[in-house]
């Protein structure tokens, strides 16, 4: 195995294992918290986009267009420098909070679009049928629309989660110590690019693999009976 040490000295990586673990846990925290917050915000975005009231729909459409048409990095800078001016509490935040805020604001429109498409994919006949048996709006949503929309939204939501996890790497630029930062730290202290960047690439690949397997499992699970109504 000594020939390997020239190209990839795993002993150096082992020395930095604690730092890599710290970075990984911050990456997963940032991604996890942003995922939950952006699902909540995304649901509101979806409901606003489906609303027939222009006063609700138009501003949200503008927000969605802005997020989709500008780079995440610029959005991160805007949140990082802009939020303390808007929210006085944010002045005492650490970088992680800004990172989570930026990722949430970035991710919510994408989540919202997926949820909106899921709700719209439920056949009209289902809603008409529910109305015919005398269900009110809440009951129709709870028992008819949402369970079917759920089946249609889960696979793309998992895909969007994979994107969100990859996007957390940009938080290294606003000095959040996440997984990529651990690699950058190793490279700046030891000048070993292979050990630094190939290790983090491998780490992200493993996370991706887990998500990929999860997504396949979910697709198989949803392909079972009673989920997708025909018609």
């Amino acid at each position: 195995m000594t020939w390997l040490l020239d190209y990839y000295n795993y002993r150096i990586v082992a020395q930095y294992l604690g730092r890599f673990a710290e970075g990984l846990s911050n990456t997963l925290t940032a991604a996890g918290v942003s995922l939950i917050l952006s699902l909540l915000l995304g649901t509101l975005v979806a409901l606003a986009l489906l609303s027939s009231r222009a006063i609700l729909r138009k501003p949200i459409e503008g927000y969605v267009a802005f997020i989709r048409a500008t780079p995440l990095l610029v959005q991160i800078y805007l949140v990082y420098y802009g939020l303390p001016a808007l929210l006085p509490i944010a002045k005492s935040w650490n970088d992680m909070y800004f990172g989570i805020a930026a990722l949430t604001l970035n991710s919510a429109p994408y989540m919202g679009e997926i949820i909106r498409a899921g709700i719209e994919s439920v056949p009209r006949g289902q809603i008409e049928g529910a109305k015919a048996v005398g269900m009110n709006y809440g009951q129709r949503m709870r028992y008819v629309v949402l369970p079917q929309a759920f089946a249609n939204t889960l696979p793309p939501l998992i895909g969007q989660t994979a994107v969100l996890i990859k996007d957390t790497s940009l938080l290294s630029i606003i000095t959040v110590f996440e997984f990529t930062s651990a690699g950058i730290l190793l490279n700046s202290e030891r000048v070993r690019p292979n050990e630094s960047f190939l290790t983090i690439a491998l780490g992200y690949l493993l996370i991706y693999l887990v998500i990929l397997l999860l997504s396949r499992g979910v697709k198989q699970w949803l392909a079972g009976p009673a989920w997708n109504a025909q018609g």
């Binding site: 990859k166 996007d167 957390t168 790497s169 940009l170 290294s172 990529t180 690699g183 950058i184 490279n187 690019p193 292979n194 630094s196 960047f197 190939l198 983090i200 690439a201 992200y204 690949l205 996370i207 991706y208 693999l209 990929l212």
Partner: peptide, 22 residues
């Protein structure tokens, strides 16, 4: 395709910028 889709572009950029010239 899986390698390119499974890693962030920032990390890929670092690989092309730091690792390959090395």
């Amino acid at each position: 395709i899986h390698i390119l889709r499974g890693t962030p572009f920032l990390v890929q950029l670092y690989v092309f910028y730091f690792v390959l010239p090395n």
